[in-house]
Design a protein around this nucleic acid. Structure first.
Length: 483
DNA sequence: ACTCCTTTGAAGTAG
DNA sequence: CTACTTCAAAGGAGT
């Protein structure tokens, strides 16, 4: 599990999930994260559209200008905040022209406290996330910084000029243990696709059990549509944005983030934005009510009776594997067993950190560029992923960890192997062997210097104990090989 | 209709 | 333990 050293070093410690090579070795990229956000889009676009060299608009001088003085470990967080603001300024005129979504109603403040800081205090990043938007939400919603924050922290859901949300913000800022303890960092559910595992990435109230909402949300009525916003469930942090109506018609880059009561902002179908998976707390609560061994055998139904999104009906995908599905009885003979297995739902893997990140950011990237091809989008997302700060990555790692935990609780006997079609070694689809040199044959690599990362030198490797050399070498041949 | 592409990370298997 | 494979999401593109 990623851990943030709350003290002097921002090293994530022994976590083997965070790749620390970008901490210093990728300083340039990290520094240019702000600009890379606009550049990578242009880069990929240009490479895909054969417009080479157009990425020069992010000129080298500006690159040098972006390069902050060598940062120290102690000043890292400060730098990070500075970079946030700086990026916000820059992106105001860049590709990241935040669409005007004056009504984007909420601010969702991810609580990054908890596991990241040994003392349990709010991490500096979290403070940053809290403080800045709190001031920002009073300013223009088109504020570059806010746009950036919303880009950077799509979970930050800013409602401008809404007293209720201000009150909500106050509440969020209040030292309520629920806010502090809840480590929930909600990731959103793409309306496109019912996410298989959306316990932590769901704030659709659609399936939330209406409970007793906080007083400040009691009369939460959408000012635009007049549609009452569904209240927060009792055990859901008010951080969760439940702002269906307002954003529906507003071209917000994170419109997909919002529960769809109106029209989806992006060319995405109204998949229903179902989040049958309760939130972490909800699930944990439900877990307390339904211990793992009491999880209903019909996994297609959650404890709430709502079809579980992680389960794909057998018609979609089938695999022959044994699991602990309660509906299976060993006494049945093979035919019936086969039928049982046919009916057996396909439990998908929990999403890892990057997948969660992709899910959250994809729509935004798609909205910011004309690219629709997922391969290209994923390239951008991959680069952005590496450009993320540790705290931001840690957020997703933690989220993924919770997803895995939740998945384990819900499906104790499930194994990733269950989803192996034909089993290990029998490839369902032959993946092209990626030799480093082979990968470099990609035109994007040549046309797109931004798609590459500086080669990792041995010095850099030694500088970071947690650097997963092997992982990086195998996972990022493209970056490891200097294009 | 199906597969590939493309990304990272988790988890599984084989040696 | 290491290396490798598969799958998770996504949707356009190709077969």
């Amino acid at each position: 599990m990623p851990q943030l050293n709350g003290g002097g070093g921002d090293d994530l410690g022994a976590n083997d999930e965070l790749i620390s090579f970008k901490d210093e070795g990728e300083q340039e990229e990290k520094i240019s994260e702000n600009s890379s956000a606009e550049r990578d889009l242009a880069d990929v676009k240009s490479s895909l559209v054969n417009e080479s060299e157009t990425n020069q608009n992010s000129s080298s001088d500006s690159e040098a200008e972006r390069r902050p003085p060598p940062r120290t470990e102690t000043s890292f967080r400060e730098k990070a905040r500075e970079s946030l603001e700086e990026a916000a300024k820059r992106q105001d005129g860049g590709l990241f022209k935040g669409p005007p979504y004056p009504g984007y109603p909420f601010i969702m403040i991810p609580d990054l406290s908890g596991p990241y800081l040994p003392n349990g205090s709010l991490s500096p990043t979290a403070r940053t996330c809290v403080n800045v938007p709190l001031d920002l939400h009073l300013t223009s919603c088109c504020s570059p910084l806010m746009q950036y924050l919303q880009m950077k922290w799509p979970l930050l859901d800013v409602q401008t000029g809404n007293l209720q949300s201000r009150q909500a913000l106050k509440d969020a800022r209040s030292p309520s243990p629920a806010h502090i303890v809840s480590n929930k960092v909600p990731v959103v559910q793409h309306p496109h696709h019912v996410h298989p595992l959306t316990p932590l990435i769901t704030y659709s109230n659609e399936h939330f059990t209406p409970g007793n909402p906080p007083p400040h949300l009691q009369a939460d009525i959408d000012p635009k549509t007049g549609i009452p916003r569904p209240p927060h469930p009792p055990d859901i942090s008010p951080y969760y944005p439940l702002s269906p109506g307002t954003v529906g018609q507003i071209p917000h880059p994170l419109g997909w983030l919002v529960p769809q009561q109106g029209q989806p902002v992006y060319p995405i179908t109204t998949g229903g934005f179902r989040h049958p998976y309760p939130t972490a707390l909800t699930v944990n609560a439900s877990m307390s009510r339904f211990p793992p061994h009491m999880v209903p055998p019909h996994h297609s139904l959650h404890t709430t009776g709502i079809p579980h999104p992680a389960i794909v009906t057998p018609t979609v995908k089938q695999e022959s594997s044994q699991s602990d599905m309660g509906s299976l009885h060993s006494s049945k003979h093979q035919d019936s067993k086969k039928e049982e297995e046919k009916k057996k739902p396909h439990i998908k893997k929990p999403l890892n950190a990057f997948m969660l990140y992709m899910k959250e950011m994809r729509a935004k990237v798609v909205a910011e560029c004309t690219l629709k091809e997922s391969a290209a989008i994923n390239q951008i997302l991959g680069r952005r992923w590496h450009a993320l700060s540790r705290e931001e990555q840690a957020k997703y790692y933690e989220l993924a960890r919770k997803e895995r935990q939740l998945h384990m609780q819900l499906y104790p006997g499930w194994s990733a192997r269950d989803n192996y079609v034909g089993g290990y070694g029998k490839k369902k689809k032959r993946k092209r062997d990626k030799q480093p040199g082979e990968t470099n044959e990609h035109s994007e690599c040549y046309l797109n210097p931004c798609l590459t990362l500086p080669p990792i030198t041995g010095e850099k490797k030694s500088a970071f104990a947690t650097y997963k050399v092997k992982a990086a070498a195998s996972a990022h041949p493209l970056q490891m090989e200097a294009c």
